[in-house]
Structures are given as C-alpha cells and as structure tokens.
Design a protein around this nucleic acid. Structure first.
Length: 542
RNA sequence: GCGCCCGUAGCUCAGCGGAUCAGAGUAUUGGCCUCCGAAGCCAAGGGUCGUGGGUUCGAAUCCCGCCGGGCGCGCCA
C-alpha cells in the first residue's frame, strides 16, 4: 500500500526469510522503530532471532537476508545496512518518508483507525457507582480510562459497548434512604439517633429538602436514587462520557438470573452447606479459601449477582470484556472468574479482563485534599472539573499507567495552567489551525502538494513521528493503555512547536508553502485524532 | 502474617519479556518576539533506575532476598 513503507519492508524481509530458511518461513517479522534517528527509520532483529536455530553467525545471516530483500526495496529505502551484532537498519528515502502526509490528508479522521481482522463484540464496564453519593475522583479516573479504552478498541474496528452497572436496591440504598429520612425530620447529620454509618454529606440535605412525606420510605428511596442518578449523569456529561447501557443489579433478581447461578453451581456440585451458609468451592479455581454465596439469613452475598451479571455479558455475546475498577477491588478478580468457571458453561478462564487503577491523591496548596463539603468524606469529580476544567482532568487522569498511584496537583493543573501538558498539546493544534486559516486556502488542495520539497531535519522528524501513530494506537488498544497516546501527543506537539519556531510556513514560494502547509495539516489531523481518543477537545482557538 | 501492585532527576511520571535506553514534563539557570500565536523555541545543570545477590558477553528491564509505600485479606459492597 502506498504510504505504508513498513508493510513493504516486512514483506520483503519475509520473502528473504522464505528463500534463506524455508523451514522458518512462519517466523514473526517485527520491525522496530529505533528511538535514535541515527539508526534509521526501521530496524529488524530477525537475523539475531534466527541465528540460533540456524546455527549461523548473525551478522553474516543479516548480510545474506539483506542481499535478498534489498532489490524489492530500492524504491523506498536508502542503502540498508547491517549494524551492531546483526540488526538490519532501514533508512527511508525522503519520498517514502513524506508519503505519510498524503495518506493522513486522505484518511482524515480515519488515520490511526484500523479494520480488525476479526471484529469482535466488546464491552467496557466502568464507573459503576452506586447512587448513594456524588462521583469521586476515583470514578473520574475510571471514567477517563474506560472511555479512552473503549475509544481505542473502537478505533481497531471492534463494536464496543460502554456499560454502567449499579445497585439500586441493596443495603447501601437503604442507608441512603434512612439518612435522607432522618435529615427530612430535622435531625443533624451524626446526631444521636442518626442511622448507623449513614451518609452525612451536604447532598443529603439537598435531597431531604425535596421530600414531601418523611414517613413514606419507599417514595423517599426512589426520590434519593433518582436525585443522585441525575446528579451523577450531569457530572458524567460535564466530563464528556456517555454510556450505552445502564445495567441494574435489581434486574438480575427480578429476572431470576441470580437463582439460576446458584442452581447451576448446585447441579455441578460446586457448593456445600456449612455453618448454616452455602459456600462455593472457589479454591478449585485458585482462590485462597472458599467463599460464602448464601448467608445464614438466606440472602446472597454481593458476589453472586456479580457472577450473574457477568454471565449476562457472556450471553449477550461480548467475547471480550474489560472491567475498569479500583485496585481496592482486586480480590474480586479471582472470585468472579472462579464463579464463572464453576458454572461450567464454557466461559474462558481469564474472562473478563480487568484494568485496575490505584487511587488518586489530590494535592492543593501543598496539602492533601481529603474531603469536600458536598460529599462529606471525599473529593468529588465535580470539584476537579470545576477547579481545572474537563480537558485537563481527562488528560491528566489518563497520562499515567492505570496501576501507578497518582498525585493530582491541582495547583499545577489550575493556577499555572499554561504549564499544563494538555494545553501544550491543544495549543499546538490551535497554532496549526491559525496558520491554515491565515493562508486561507482549502485543505483538500494540499493533498496534491509536492511533498518532495520537504527536506529539513525537523520536517523529517515530524513525518517520522506522524507515521508512528497507527501502530501506537493499535498497541495502546491491545494493552488497554491510553497513557501511551497522551505521551505520544506531547511529543508530536513538541516537535511541531519546534518546527513552527524554526521555519516560516507561509513563505512566498507557492509550491514550498503548499508542501509545508500539507505537513501542518497532517499534524493537525493527527493531533485531533489522538485527542479525540482521549476525549479531550481540539480547539481551533484558545 | 498472607496475596497483589508500586519504588527511575528536586517534583509528577514514561521506558520493563535483554542490545540502538538514562528519558519527558515541570522546577532552576542563561539566551530568543520590527516577521505565520513567546500559553512557544534554543541551551545548560540535575539520577551508581530503593537495596543486596543471581542468570548473561550485556540487566532500569528477567529471577530470589531485604527495605520502604499502597491496596486487599467479612456470612460488607
């Protein structure tokens, strides 16, 4: 495919391997992008990998492979060379390097997207907060992560459902209702007689204010749940996150799905009675100890509906499911998988996948912020959005690996917002838009620009960086790791700023100007595509 | 005590199935606006990659011990 030299080089190497060592023809050829420009645009360690099974000197093998691969590549690469212990380095000709620009302008918003060989029906479940209070910063991290992961999977051609699961009926909800009732009767939060472990945040008062009849606990419960669901939805909307499905835990009971799970376990003899309770043999599936599934009072533990819920995911045809949760829930991983295995209905052992994130610590004014007035005991997502803005929150929260603990410095993100990485990236986008608009032409014309006129080092760096994007997105999707996209965008923005300051884009000479503008337009498109994956806006002005 | 995760520059963090890997941002210091956006660019200083072993020609990266931190370890969710 024109504009994809990587595929051409891989094909040529594969052909060479087939000739050189037919018995290893199926060996995976992986091209790497050397970090240092001095080592070319692509390198292959295939000779090092094949040297051992073939019992040959890796350098000599590399030379031999190269001799067989080189003729097919004469068009696109400079003279390739064998380096070090047996790496083969390829340096693209300018024409092949800049071809990516035309490709980006042609593909537009599709640049970086791929068509999956086997498109799958996938689901990402995240946030899943119970309606007992405002969303906290941990939910924010989940929302940012989950939405970005879903976008990444979609970019690879999969059909992705974003799902929110919540408990609308359990003991937590009862506590909520009782708290609101107490408040509606004029009781002060925490005063004598206040419900045990009741909720004390300011929002309880807001809900209580709307209570018509403090005696009617059912109505009160519905009111409280509806109120908080609405508030959570408003926060998610402000955060730019939309869900396709809201799944109610209560529906698992009303549809008999919870009982069905117990029944299947019983039939396959995976449960036993002890101390008046019913236990599941999770130790058969790697758990430390067996777990209670039905308490002696006859009610189920939380994890039975949890398993029933995951059965519905499987039955709904989601072949891949990613649950985004805090690391404080990591013990459920083994348990849920064990519960699913014990059903014996053919669900894979490692179903579902999990992305676990550690908690977020919020720093402001040199001290940790632990509480907000509204929630009573934690910092809310809304606080964060109000303090630093949606884009900064989203970008920050996905800029770290999910499992690293993360200190969110509000002062850095807010008071010195010009130093914030997200503005650095958005600013690059705004700058390109500005130069394109000052030129005043139509972007499609740029696709016909004579790109060979680009020759500067910074121009080659940019072209090289732009070409990395599709692979980077594919890897990020496979690893459910949006942070690498954030890092990439910062690097791309940096190279653009550097270029912009060093070269004049709007030169008099029309052909050169068009070529440079084409490069700029490709940068703009790639920045926009990347930011879109992270749910961050790409402003034309700021 | 047991299990999982994390220790990389002053700070916040990338890099992790070995080679071309000591990195980014920020902070500090010094330069750059008669010219497309200075919310920017250029340059400098700053780390024996927690620590001690092991495997290897070669380890931030793999293995083991230790130290430090986080989170779990309920007939809570």
């Amino acid at each position: 495919m024109p504009g994809d030299p990587k595929a051409q080089i891989e094909a040529a190497l594969r052909t060479a391997v087939e000739k050189e060592a037919p018995e290893h023809a199926s060996f995976a050829i992986t091209l790497e992008r050397p970090k240092q420009a001095g080592h070319g645009d692509f390198s292959s360690n295939i000779a090092l990998q094949l040297a051992k099974p073939l019992k040959r000197n890796p350098r000599e093998l590399a030379e031999s492979l190269l001799a067989k691969a080189a003729p097919a590549l004469a068009e696109i690469v400079e003279k390739p060379e064998v380096a070090g212990p047996g790496f083969i380095n390829f340096r693209l000709k300018t024409k092949a390097k800049v071809a990516v620009i035309a490709r980006i302008l042609e593909e537009g918003a599709n640049y970086g997207r791929a068509r999956a060989e086997k498109p799958q029906k996938m689901q990402v479940e995240f946030v899943s907060a119970n309606p007992t209070g405002p969303l906290h910063v941990g939910h924010g991290r989940q929302a940012a992560l989950g939405d970005a992961i879903a976008a990444l999977l979609e970019s690879q051609g999969h059909a992705v459902t974003r799902e929110f699961y919540y408990n609308d009926a359990g003991a937590q909800i009862e506590k909520l209702a009782l708290s609101v009732q107490a408040r509606a009767r004029g009781m002060a939060p925490g005063a004598p007689g206040w419900p045990e472990e009741g909720y004390k945040g300011e929002y309880i008062e807001d809900i209580a204010r709307e209570v018509a009849d403090a005696q009617d606990l059912d109505a009160l419960r519905r009111l409280a749940v509806a109120y908080l669901r609405k508030e959570q939805d408003a926060d998610l909307q402000a955060f730019g996150v939309k869900f396709d499905v809201y799944y109610l835990e209560s529906s698992l009971y009303t549809q008999g799905k919870v009982d069905a799970v117990i029944e299947k376990w019983s039939i396959s003899k995976k449960v036993y009675e002890k101390d008046g309770a019913l236990w599941l043999r999770t130790t058969d599936y790697g758990d430390d100890k067996d777990r209670v599934v039905r308490k002696s009072d006859g009610s189920y533990t939380y994890f039975v509906p949890d398993v029933a819920y995951h059965v519905t995911k499987w039955e709904r045809g989601f072949t891949k499911v990613i649950d985004v949760q805090g690391t404080d829930h990591h013990s459920t991983v083994t348990r849920v998988r064990a519960g699913l295995q014990a059903l014996g209905i053919g669900i894979p052992k490692d179903y579902p996948d999990y992305v676990l994130h550690s908690l977020v610590k919020v720093m402001r004014g040199g001290a940790e912020v632990k509480i907000s007035k509204r929630a009573g005991s934690y910092v809310t997502l809304r606080d964060l959005i109000d303090w630093v803005g949606r884009d900064a929150v989203r970008f920050f929260l996905v800029s770290r690996k999910a499992d690293s603990e993360f200190v969110f410095d509000v002062d850095l993100a807010r008071e010195k917002s010009e130093e914030n990485p997200v503005y650095y990236v958005q600013y690059a986008h705004a700058r390109v838009c500005s130069v394109l608009s000052q030129w005043g032409g139509r972007t499609p014309e740029l696709a016909k620009a004579d790109l060979d006129l680009l020759s500067g080092g910074k121009e080659m760096d940019l072209a090289r960086r732009l070409a990395e994007f599709p692979d980077l997105v594919a890897t990020a999707a496979r690893e459910a790791a949006p942070h690498s996209v954030a890092f990439y965008l910062r690097e791309l923005a940096g190279e653009f700023h550097s270029y912009y300051n060093a070269e004049r884009i709007l030169v008099e000479e029309e052909r050169l100007r068009s070529a440079r503008l084409a490069l700029c337009a490709a940068v703009r498109q790639t920045l926009a595509n990347g930011l879109s994956l992270l749910g961050v806006s790409a402003p034309e002005k700021m």
